[in-house]
Each structure stands twice: as C-alpha cells, then as structure tokens.
Design a protein around this nucleic acid. Structure first.
Lengths: 135, 135
DNA sequence: TGATATACGACTATTTTAGTCCTATTTAAT
DNA sequence: ATTAAATAGGACTAAAATAGTCGTATATCA
C-alpha cells in the first residue's frame, strides 16, 4: 500500500552512488551491489534501465561500468521512478481508459477523478525532488 | 508500486456513499456493495474498520447499518487510510527503527532520511484532502 | 422465532514483487 | 588469440502481499 518497490529503492541508491562517485571512472554494478549489500543482478538490471532512459550512460567491457548522464540537479526522483516502474499509478484504472472489463465498478465509482488530482500532487512531490537533494 | 490497495479504494467509496446518503437511515454493507458491484463481505469489513476508528457509527440488527460519525469536511483521506492500512509507509524501514535483521543494507543506505521527508509530503496530500472534497 | 443486519476470525486464491539462472556480447589486458 | 570482467537481457522461480471467501456468533426488528 503506497510503498516504494525495491526496484525503485535500488534505483535511488544506485543513482545516488553514481552522483557521489563521478571522479572519472565508471562505477560497476558489482561495486554498487557490494557497497549496499544488494543482489548484484538486481542492481545490474536497474542500471540497465537507467541507461535506457538516458539517466545513466554505460560502457561495456573489462573497464566498463556506469556514469550519470546528467547533473544530479537535472535528474528528478520522478524521472527515476518513471524509468524503473511501468505501473506507477495510484489505481490501475488510471493507466488507460477503464472498461467494464478492466474495472467492474466504473459505473458507480465516482472516485477516479478526485484520485487523479491526488495523483498529480504526489507526482509533484517526486518531480520537485532532484537527485541532488538526496545526496 | 505506490498503488492504493482495494481496501483503501473501497473505504473511500464507502465513506463517500455514507456522506451522500445521510438522510436519516442507515446504509448497509450490502447496499453499498451492490451499488458499486463490490464483494459484500469486503465492504462489510472495511465498514467495520471505519467504525472502530470512529469514522463511522454502526447499528446492528434488521434495520441496522452505518452512518458517518463526523461531517465530511472533518474527515480526511489520511484518516481513512490510516484506519484501513496497517502498513502505510513508503518503505518498511520507516515503521520502526531498522535493524541489521530487518534491513540488510542499513549501513550503506543513505536514502532513508530523504525518503522520510517525502513521506511527510505525501501524507500531507491526504491530510489536506477531506472527504467533502471528493463528493 | 425468523429474517436481516453487524462482527470477526480463519482460511484460500491470486497477483505482484523480488530474486535467481543462464547465455550472449563487448572490451581491456596478457 | 585468449582470458577475464564487464554490460545486456530473457526466462524462470520463490516469496510475500493482496484480494477475496467461508463460517459462525451476536444483535435487533417484525
């Protein structure tokens, strides 16, 4: 219930690590995983997603790894969440127009619109917090 | 991921129903369930919890049912969430002081404090929205 | 006394989340 | 060339949280 997923937590942690360790070298998934005592593979996947979304840049091979692709104050927590979470929404019916099939109580439910307003406010909390602010 | 539970959705819907149908009679769980096409028993449980938390009042027996215990503008969405959800927190480590056992990466994690700030802001979104505002 | 309601604990099913495993590709160093 | 260490990514499994059901007790009105 209104909980951050581990994926998001790891993404925040990894992004934070990259922001703090940008001294010319590439940070590896292994390095980050060991630092925080997280599964190496999970961090790896999260980093891959951050790369796909242009938040990080990657380099393959032996001396490879990741660096941030933007300055920490140009990356919001919202950017990271959106990159990592496909289903970031207060309710399922807010992803696409709900149908009788996807939501059995659309007819009676008069709660969707007010919740959309709340969704926006929560979005703004993350939009207004940059990575820099959590360093 | 940052999703409202069905319990909370049903609680919002039920509270809203009670607010709109306060014309002297008691609304039953069945009535609400049929109106929204939700499981009767789930609504019943949610209503029981609202009662326990003094958001609603109940009356047993044949003509029994529920009414709101306060005015809609005196009930916040936060009140309802807190009543219904035991585990409303962004991360598990925000419920009680985390230990090595409950969180394997406390040592390295420097993300908890900033998240606590975000938690407060999200709380405020719900605190600042009254039931009246979603009628 | 029967019908209809709340009250509530125990249980089951389903879905989501978390995590693992395996294989391919890239690249630096030897 | 070959090896070692890294990213890349799909398929799968395990665990936990959520959603929902069942059964039974109690209250109250007619």
């Amino acid at each position: 219930m209104l909980k951050l997923s581990k994926k998001t937590e790891y993404a925040f942690m990894a992004a934070r690590y990259l922001a703090l360790n940008n001294s010319g070298h590439y940070s590896t998934a292994k390095e980050i995983a060991e630092n925080y005592d997280i599964s190496h593979q999970l961090v790896a996947k999260v980093l891959q997603v951050l790369k796909k979304n242009n938040i990080a840049a990657s380099f393959q091979g032996v001396k490879g790894g990741y660096v941030l692709n933007k300055k920490p104050d140009e990356i919001t927590l919202y950017d990271i969440i959106i990159a990592v979470e496909e289903k970031y929404k207060l309710t399922n019916c807010m992803h696409d127009e709900p149908t009788e099939e996807s939501c059995s109580h659309i007819e009676g439910c008069r709660i969707r619109d007010p919740l959309a307003g709340i969704q926006k406010k929560i979005d703004n909390v993350f939009i207004n917090t940059s990575l820099k602010q959590i360093l």
